[in-house]
Design a protein around this nucleic acid. Structure first.
Lengths: 222, 222
DNA sequence: CCAAAAGTGTTATTGATACACCCATGC
DNA sequence: GCATGGGTGTATCAATAACACTTTTGG
């Protein structure tokens, strides 16, 4: 019999992340510019190789923290991409995750003059390395689908928010308009929101009641 | 800098399959008895190592064909399990798939006197190797969920069937009773079924019209 | 003629959708 | 006092759920 490594693959394992946020009324995803071959200078999803003894989820959280500085955000495993030719140099299998981050949580994202990291609108993507465009398409599809039947959108909201901001968030994700009264009725009926008692007086107009999510797990549905 | 293999995992990759069928009014899953350590003599999900140059899906289909002799059945990637300790000997990551097979398609399953393969009711599982019970739980959960909002159940039906058989199939999967008239109305309204023109006269009673699915892809939803 | 599964419609309930005006504030 | 976004209720429509009897066959 042959030795194990002759017949069986022992590929490199990476995790790649589709990290979404919403800013200036656009759904955006984090891209990083590759410093190394292959695809040097191309944009790609943030990712990294799995370390010894590290779980997949731990690796995903490590990459997330390295790139964004945040933890405790919504993240779920998306899909595993293992085409033999997806990395031109050697066999690499990637476990893709997608994560949601409220824009406000990202620390001064515009102030850092980084040129190797960007937030790109998902409808205006540059050429991406590897099969990352496929991964991203799949992630967007899943996000849009789940926005329709779960409360996943909560993962994009700041601590406190106006109902109109929540509605706008939904509209950006599902790329469609919603009726204000029906939206409010439905949201309040879920019983997942509570008034904070405070009002948002930043606008030049009638102050809006601020809401927050009741403290509980984000409901997964898979 | 250390060599790549010192810092990065290059684990073995397996695919494991939750292959479902329905027989004698029970949702059943294929289990195989392990011939080797670890977990020798324990039941486990059928699976195998990824071969050089093989895609994940190809590996899953290979295992499926080896164990059941069938291809062209419904199969989808489920989830990737990568806990560092899930295999007691070395790091192995498994990409789990789930598949659906109509019982009739399996060739004389009872006649073969195999003792290393069984179809176990999902509510009466033996102890399973590795983390296969977790995998299976997740697969059953997904199957039940998708039965509620997709036509995935079709994957368990034979070529021709009575509507009452289709209803029974749904009832077994979702583990609940359905109203006959509402069920028929709903099914016929989908426009995915067509009468074959033939009737099932095997019963001792009024013959039933036989139906088949219109030829088209099974609608994925993910 | 009896047992057993096949087949068939209507009503009630629920949930989703459509829709327009007054309110509170800053300037 | 006007411009701007905040906030509210009802009527219609669609989808789902509840519910019982007649029909066809074999034995």
């Amino acid at each position: 019999m042959n030795t194990k490594s002759e017949i069986y693959e022992q590929p490199g394992i990476t995790v790649d992340l589709a990290i979404f946020t919403v800013n200036t009324n656009k759904l955006k995803v984090m891209l990083v510019k590759r410093a190394e071959d292959p695809f040097r200078e191309n944009w790609s999803l943030p990712g990294g190789f799995l370390l010894h003894g590290e779980s997949l989820q731990a690796a995903a959280y490590r990459v997330l923290r390295e790139k964004t500085g945040v933890k405790n955000v919504y993240m779920e495993q998306l899909y595993t991409f293992g085409d033999p030719k997806r990395d031109p140099r050697s066999r690499v299998i990637t476990v893709a995750y997608f994560a949601l981050i409220p824009w406000k949580v990202l620390d001064q994202p515009e102030s850092k003059k980084v040129t190797d990291l960007t937030w790109s609108s998902v409808d205006q993507l540059p050429k991406l390395a590897f099969d990352h465009k496929d991964i991203l398409k799949y992630a967007v599809k899943r996000l849009r689908a789940k926005a329709g039947y779960s409360n996943i959108v909560y993962g994009l909201m700041p601590e406190q928010f106006r109902l109109s901001e929540l509605q706008t968030m939904y509209e950006i994700i599902i790329d469609d308009k919603l009726d204000k009264r029906n939206f409010r009725k439905r949201m309040l009926a879920t019983n997942l929101l509570q008034e904070t008692g405070e009002k948002d007086i930043t606008g030049a107009h009638r102050p809006a009641m601020l809401y927050q999510f009741k403290k509980m797990e984000i409901a997964f549905s898979n």
